[in-house]
Simulated assay, not measured.
Amino acid sequence: MVIQMPPKETSPRPFLKWAGGKSKLIQQYIPYFPKDYQTYYEPFLGGGAVFFYLQPNTAILTDINAELINTYCCVRDNVDELILLLKEHKKRHNKDYYYSVRNNSNGTNLEKAARLIYLNKTCFNGLYRVNSQGNFNVPLGRYENPNICPENLLKLASKVLSQVEIHQADFTEVLNRATSSNDFVFFDPPYHPISDSSYFTAYSQNCFTKKDQELLRDTCAELASRGVKVMLCNSDSEFIKKIYTEINFERYTIKAARSINSNIKNRGMIDELLITSFDNQEFKSQNSEVSVDFVRMTSE
């Protein structure tokens, strides 16, 4: 059985490019998603690829990034007005205009949302990065004709988000909500570095440290003790393997393309981990029929 994705033109999908986005990994994730749950939680929302693929009936989406959450809320609640602002950005786009917009973070919530989308569509590699003062500092990208106003995509996203709860929160806030096997939580945190040179923590003003990774592990363990279905991804590093071995979570190897690197020679396929609190017996029984590139890890 080969699992097919719905056509891109008619299916909701991320409207933002985001470092570590999961759109290209969904095919490998499909066999591991739990089959039965009522409420979906995504505490590191980012580009929201998993949410847009699953399209759950009930969902609570959160992120610590206030600009990102504001943008999702505007797409959900005021997409037509947002599109008008993006069309204006598109008309005026050039190098000088890009930097004038980048250097001005003031405005209404709608103007801030349009600014983020505009910068995301025109900056280098679609990379979200802020400096120590919290100011977006990515240079202009080299695009012939950037898709600054993806009108249909935004309207599809708005429709799917229409009944979804969205708010700014730290990832531990999910402990106040998810309480039983009716809940499914997907965590896509900033990855622990495989090496010192691969460290990327500029997702927000706050670095994601080893202590944060351990707090996330403890959060996952607490959720699992309640029967909550937990899935998370992270780097294939010895530290991550160790801390999730300690709580007896299932671990799988996923093949991912490394695309954000200034040196093209350092791009290519790497291993990542997909970690779950549950053992998908249904998938195991159908293993021989599913066409997915994955390798099950053995315990150390």
Rank of each mutant, 00 (worst) to 15 (best):
T10N: 12
S11I: 02
P12Q: 01
R13Y: 04
R13Q: 15
R13C: 03
F15Y: 03
G20N: 04
G21S: 02
G21P: 03
K22A: 05
K24L: 03
Q28D: 03
I30F: 04
F33S: 01
D36K: 13
F44M: 08
G46M: 05
V50M: 09
V50N: 00
V50H: 01
F52C: 02
Y53V: 00
I60W: 12
L61N: 05
T62L: 11
D63T: 10
I64D: 00
E67K: 08
Y72S: 06
V79L: 14
D80K: 09
L84P: 04
L85W: 08
L85H: 15
L86S: 02
E88T: 12
R92C: 10
R102Q: 06
N104R: 13
T108R: 04
N109A: 15
E111M: 14
K112A: 05
K112P: 00
A113S: 07
A114T: 02
A114C: 03
I117L: 05
Y118M: 09
L119M: 07
N120R: 04
N120G: 10
N120A: 06
F124Y: 09
N131H: 12
N131F: 11
S132G: 07
N137K: 00
L140V: 01
P146R: 01
N147A: 07
I148C: 08
C149I: 11
N152T: 11
N152V: 07
L153I: 02
L154V: 06
L154H: 13
L156S: 00
S158K: 01
S158M: 15
S158L: 14
V160K: 11
Q163P: 14
V164T: 13
E165I: 13
Q168V: 09
A169P: 09
D170E: 14
F171W: 08
E173R: 15
V174R: 05
V174Q: 07
N176M: 11
N176G: 03
F187S: 00
D188S: 01
P190G: 08
P190E: 05
S204L: 03
S204V: 07
D212L: 14
E214N: 11
L215F: 12
L215V: 08
L216N: 01
D218L: 06
C220I: 10
K229W: 04
K229I: 01
M231Y: 01
L232Y: 04
C233Q: 10
S237R: 00
K241L: 07
K242A: 10
I243M: 05
I243Y: 08
T245M: 14
I247V: 11
I247R: 00
N248A: 14
F249H: 07
E250Y: 06
K255C: 00
S259Q: 13
S259I: 15
I260R: 06
N263G: 10
M269I: 12
M269D: 00
S277M: 12
F278E: 05
D279C: 10
N280H: 12
E282V: 15
E282I: 14
K284I: 08
E289V: 13
V290L: 08
V292F: 04
V295L: 02
T298K: 12
